[in-house]
Design a protein around this nucleic acid. Structure first.
Lengths: 338, 338
DNA sequence: GTGAAAGCGCTAACAG
DNA sequence: CTGTTAGCGCTTTCAC
């Protein structure tokens, strides 16, 4: 490897400055020079060295992204959406997974910063453990949080409006006649877990439905299955269960049905995210759709606005989600839930 | 931003060379100097600039990876595994999705090359359309293909032994008593589609089972559902169907059951990949497990061995897969399939 | 419009 | 053991 702009200049019989100008087209050159440089570059197979350009320009055209894990379809989807958005502006994605561990997350943040990414998009894995590293990073480079966020609010955030989401879910099952509702989510180590639970509680109070103590475990299918079994063994079965994500919901529906409980006739189940196979599973899942593409677009847009030096109040963009009714929830009861 | 090694040197009262040596520890310095440099660096919050280092060293510590799409759980899993392997050696992953389009793939390859990645791992999206760009890239930088590959064999490859995989699958259903077997895969635009189909045909011949014409569509759940419907409408139902991946298999099982056909009693279904929820779906899927972690490790290892200049024959590493029997296939018939 | 030269931040000769 | 210096490839003043 290694044909440089010097080689091109020599072959074209001009100075490197002219070659640079001709190649970039950002400054006028004689048509003749432009011509010769273009041909020389083509013949030599010249390819500009982005590393040198980055050093010179003090900008890499690279955005770093850290998500807890790419095994979770929600994160996969958002990574895909961000990658897509970045393409539009000719930037590239440096992707890392923190594996749900703050120490790994902090290390990845360091190497991304060392590589001089132009910006950072992160979904912090732990609402407490992620704080110092994220805040420190935000001090050095534009940073926006997606979905999950850390406490203390020093950095921008874009995500879904969990209050609205849970209100839609609870109102929906209430309209279907549910009187006793339960929430199944994850342990409260990340912001999503917390705000969805509190959103649920507010919504239930407002809708006037009774609740059982929430089940808090993991955002996984396995946890959904486990809760399903727990519910089957308990003496009271709720009329509806609202889940923190789709994977939990799918596991729960399966366990309930296996245990002989009919969904949605006896129990309504509502998921959250609407990524992956929520629409294609059996039965198709009623769920709250996260506006992933909009979130990604907004995150990328925010990145362009952030000024590290300027301590303007952190932006918080909560995008309204939409309930998608499919077949795991009862339709509105004729005559209403009165 | 911007405390450089010069700042550190000045603060420590030494030359930049000493500062560099002290920081890297690759050459001896006085304990005193080491001490002062370390303190200065810490106080100033010095962070080495990886871009400058890359320009100087002519190596970026970055590996580029291109997969068709991260919506497919198989690719997600392999990306995760590669990322994991790279961590071990302190390198980072520059990830791109070609979105199954050779033109996008070629463009991404260009920008990765411009960024001077130290190596490339790619699953070419199209067995013909991907050829020129991939071959050209392989000429400039160590490149290894994973899973899919292009024809012409100019570049290293690591993947699964499709012949062995299909033989295991076919033999298994034959032992379960199947006489008529069909293959459901994707259109033959990529190597996996082709080699799985031909592996199937060879295996069927050798096992002495009859076959129906294959169904070739997409590697998606939707395609599985569609084929299920087609099968229900046809006059002959096979005893077993072997699928090109798990998503097809899951869709197929669902459609068959919805149509009143019992799986595995009437029809055995075998998937391929064993990623995502193959084990957790209902019923748990019998499938051929791809050794993803080994494939990733092997790919990363090969990357380190490739010498661009040295035109040694391209390596082809086919890792043996293992059939995982779960509940969508009939167990061995008592008395054998005789 | 063009060329010479400086400099982005770093490390590895090469002298001392 | 330490300091000086060149140079990785590129763009952009600054003179002409």
């Amino acid at each position: 490897m290694g044909v440089t702009i010097h080689d091109v200049a020599r072959a074209a019989g001009v100075s490197v400055a002219s070659a640079s100008r001709a190649l970039s087209g950002r400054r006028k050159v004689t048509p003749d020079v432009a011509e010769r440089v273009a041909r020389a570059a083509a013949e030599l197979g010249y390819q500009p060295n982005a590393v040198a350009k980055a050093l010179r320009d003090q900008t890499t055209g690279t955005i770093g992204m850290i998500v807890p894990g790419i095994g979770n379809p929600f994160f996969t989807t958002i990574v895909e959406a961000v990658e897509h958005q970045l393409q539009e502006t000719g930037r590239d994605l440096l992707l890392c997974a923190s594996q749900y561990r703050p120490d790994i997350e902090a290390r990845r943040l360091e190497t991304l910063l060392a590589r001089r990414v132009d910006g950072l998009i992160i979904s912090p894995c732990d609402i407490e453990g992620s704080v110092p590293a994220v805040l420190n990073a935000a001090r050095r480079v534009p940073l926006v949080q997606v979905d999950r966020y850390i406490e203390g609010g020093g950095a921008d955030w874009v995500g879904v409006d969990d209050d609205s989401a849970l209100a839609q879910a609870v109102d929906h099952v209430a309209e279907g006649g549910a009187r006793l509702v339960v929430f199944v989510g994850s342990r409260l180590m990340n912001s999503s877990a917390r705000s969805r639970l509190s959103g649920f509680e507010r919504a239930a109070t407002r809708a006037g439905v009774a609740t059982m103590p929430p089940f808090l475990g993991e955002f996984t299918l396995e946890w959904g299955v486990e809760v399903g079994r727990l519910l089957l063994d308990a003496d009271t079965m709720p009329d509806a269960v609202i889940c923190g994500n789709d994977q939990i919901a799918v596991g729960l529906v399966r366990a309930l049905r296996t245990g002989g409980v009919r969904v949605p006739e006896e129990v309504s189940v509502v998921g959250f995210d609407d990524v992956g196979h929520a629409a294609m599973c059996d039965p198709p899942l009623t769920t709250v759709r996260q506006p992933v593409e909009e979130m990604a677009a907004e995150a990328v847009r925010l990145l362009g606005l952030v000024r590290v030096s300027d301590p303007r109040p952190a932006q918080r963009v909560a995008i309204a989600p939409r309930l998608v009714v499919r077949e795991t929830s009862r339709p509105v009861a004729a005559g209403g839930g009165k």
